[in-house]
Nucleic acid binder design. Structure first.
Lengths: 151, 151
DNA sequence: TTCAAACCAGACTGTTTAGGTCTGGTTTAA
DNA sequence: TTAAACCAGACCTAAACAGTCTGGTTTGAA
């Protein structure tokens, strides 16, 4: 079950970022607070957030009453930013990653298809920011037409 | 490297199906022939093709001079058919798979995004058939605009 | 100044998946 | 009756996944 499925850690990172986007940006949220609200294992989340810090998306404050806050405004943090802070560049097939060389060239007829998927996926992740989720508390059944422009 | 990357076995299955789509449908292609032409490990490919057979996409002929051929015309075999024969239903996040239940509901604001990605990915895989690849031997640098209609 | 609440860093671990391989069948044309 | 081919499933190794553990360092406050 689940080809092309995003890993849990990415889901957790996005949850954390979204949580922070709802808070006062001046306030530091402790790890425990975020973990509790999002239902994510505390220590695992800690490691994940370090990636967001190294990626410049989150800033931290140490010491008592320390914690985390977004380093930029929610409108300036895209899903792609979060995902790539953890995973590096998105590549739906191996031929999409390493400098466009496919060892089965020049006869691989699939490249166009991978290209199209890649483009569409990255497009959604790039255009969707944390700010886009701040309204709409639950859109479980919506088919998200409001988020996408026509490709 | 490679979040949301399709596994090698899916790539191999598609290669094999595409290879068969180029052959005379009455002729049986041996495993060795397919493996050689597509540069896929022979025994691994054998196991993969069994999935395609169980999925009704490929038929086999046993005995000397036996082999494999497509069970339907190339225009009636989509990427989605091949992928799901191996992997089961496509689900870009866990909440997309198990009967639309996300344990963080009703507050998960991401569902709309996953939904959109899911829809776009499945759309491409569903609309692309083996017949679409029979012309265009190499479209490495094309951005595949001919394959997609506007979403 | 010392305590403790918080973050930081990296080693470690158990389970699953990926990507194959191996062994031993069964079918069937020559 | 042989051998070329497919069939079926157990097996294997390495990596990835999802966490946990241990032991730091920083810093506000008593």
């Amino acid at each position: 079950m689940g080809v092309m499925q995003i890993p849990r850690r990415v889901d957790y990172a996005l949850r954390a970022a979204i949580y922070l986007s709802h808070q006062d940006p001046e306030r530091s949220c402790s790890l425990a607070e975020i973990a509790r609200h999002q239902g994510v294992p505390r220590k695992f989340l800690e490691k994940i957030i370090q990636n967001l810090i190294r990626g410049g998306l989150v800033k931290s404050k140490r010491g008592p009453d320390g914690g985390y806050a977004l380093a930029r405004s929610p409108g300036e943090i895209s899903f792609q930013n979060v995902i790539e802070a953890l995973e590096g560049p998105i590549a739906v097939n191996v031929c999409m990653s390493q400098h466009l060389s496919c060892d089965h060239l020049p006869r691989c007829t699939m490249l166009g298809v991978w290209n199209e998927i890649q483009r569409k996926v990255v497009d959604v992740f790039a255009r969707t920011t944390l700010a886009d989720l701040q309204r709409s508390p639950c859109q479980a059944l919506a088919s998200s037409s409001s988020l996408s422009s026509a490709a």
